[in-house]
Amino acid sequence: MKLTLKIWRQNGPEDKGGVVTYPIEGVSEDMSFLEMLDVLNEGLTAKGEEPVAFDSDCREGICGMCGVMINGEAHGPERTTTCQLHMRSFRDGDEIVIEPWRADAFPVIKDLCVDRGSLDRIIQSGGYISANTGSAPDAHATPVPKDDADRAFMAAECIGCGACVAACPNASGMLFMGAKITHLGEFPQGQPERDARVLSMTGQHDEEGFGGCTNLGECSRACPKGIPLNVISQMNGDLLRAQRHRA
């Protein structure tokens, strides 16, 4: 396949940046999207141009490190991560626009790499169950209904890639946060901190400069793990409950 790539290049956080066009040939449909970028980078290196910086690590769709905007869609046209997107989703002659995630809470570091530390700070503010090492009771001490455990698992599938924020017209991080709150809130072990967790995390979310949610659902549509919108509603409900409890 022959393609035309339009890639956002930005030398550093302070640089203004802009789109640069690169033609590329010899792309096979068995390549993953990132392998296609590897080929581009090999070519750039041979020509003495600095390769395009992009993040990736596991390349099997689970670490959440990769993620770019492809033709205006987070992770591209399929519901998967960028590393698991394969070139068979494109056609010969296509023009592909590649941009970094855009949100003020995700400042660009270089080219397609952004800083998603804001997501870590949301977790720091309460996205955990406090269980000091060695203090745990036997795992079978508290049975958990299978449905609850399954829902928790569904929410816990979040890989923290940030596609939800990138896709959201308001650059909101509610799906990410709702997933964590739903995951921990489904377990008996998560109850003691449930109120404090939602209060603290939602506060941190706003402090980081994410936008508010308008329930449009773009986040869930972009989520490579298919996390449903109801985790946001769950979080909203939990917040109301927590505020009642505190009042």
């Binding site: 003020d104 017209p169 308001n170």
Partner: peptide, 29 residues
């Protein structure tokens, strides 16, 4: 207030953007 916060949450816009329906709904609201 939310409108203005959303504006400040993404000050650099995308060059290309899909999701026309969501954008339409957002604007219509």
């Amino acid at each position: 207030l939310l409108w203005s916060r959303a504006g400040r949450a993404r000050t650099v816009r995308y060059v290309q953007r899909k999701g026309e329906w969501a954008t339409f709904v957002k604007r219509s609201m």
